[in-house]
């Protein structure tokens, strides 16, 4: 019988709790009972595989989905998808969605009084390459108000959805921009208890990735839970 990969639970400590009262929506949506801690069976250690039929090359360029160019500051967001041991996670689906440059989402429930952009839809996807790299071209999203508390504003962010190799590596997170003055006031950003862990959600400006006369570059590496070395890898 082949041995299954072994995942530690240490990584779970970086995550926010379910109940974080400053973020009002957690109050009625967080479980009251403790989670049941379960062993990792084949069900948690397997997961969906996606391929090139799930993405088209143009899906990674969010500025190319309309009839014309969207308004705003054009940016390149790129990075690597890695596991805790620093190993690349190749051929893995990366999905993003975001507000436009005015801070408005193309969604029926977004009633923020800021203009929609007919040339910006705000969704993209790609597969990581053999070295775990991904890259999107998009528009820098705007900050926007929300109803959590008086004068509440979300710092600008891009939503990221990642799969990794199995069910237990699934992650949805948000990428923030360096130096955002709204960080101290945002209960979602601060739901992550550890300051160092919060910093891992902030992209860094990347002059090397900047395309002269075209777009600013930002780098955002994403780290998913990774398996310990399996007994198989120690040789036999």
């Amino acid at each position: 019988m082949s041995s299954l990969p072994v995942y530690s639970r240490e990584a779970l400590q970086a995550d926010p709790p379910y109940l974080h009262p400053p973020y009002a929506s957690t109050r009625l949506r967080s479980p009251r009972e403790p989670l049941v801690i379960v062993p990792h069976t084949l069900s948690e250690l397997s997961g969906p595989a996606f391929g090139h039929s799930d993405v088209r090359p143009e899906d990674a360029d969010l500025t190319a989905h309309g009839q014309g160019q969207p308004i705003g500051e054009r940016i390149i967001v790129h990075g690597r998808l890695l596991d805790e041991k620093g190993r690349a996670i190749p051929n893995s689906l990366v999905e993003v969605w975001q507000a436009n440059s005015t801070g408005r989402y193309r969604h029926a429930r977004d009633q923020h009084d800021a203009p929609l952009d007919p040339n910006f839809f705000g969704a993209g996807r790609c597969l990581t390459d053999a070295e775990g790299r991904y890259q999107f071209t998009t528009i820098r999203p705007g900050a926007y108000p929300w109803g959590n508390h008086p004068n509440a504003w979300r710092p600008a962010h891009i939503h990221f959805s990642l799969f990794g190799p199995c069910f237990l590596t699934r992650l949805v997170t948000q990428m923030y921009f360096p130096g955002d003055p709204l960080f101290p006031f945002d209960p979602i950003f601060h739901s992550v208890p550890d300051a160092k862990a919060r910093e891992r959600m902030i992209a860094r400006f990347d002059l090397q990735a900047t395309r002269p006369e075209w777009a600013l570059g930002f780098r955002f590496d994403i780290v998913l839970r990774g398996p310990e070395e399996t007994p198989m890898e120690h040789g036999r």
Partner: peptide, 18 residues
């Protein structure tokens, strides 16, 4: 390396995920 923490999908996930 340390993992990237989780954040909510928020109310507008249909744009990118459905």
């Amino acid at each position: 390396m340390s993992v990237t923490p989780s954040q909510t999908v928020g109310p507008y996930f249909q744009i990118g995920l459905i």
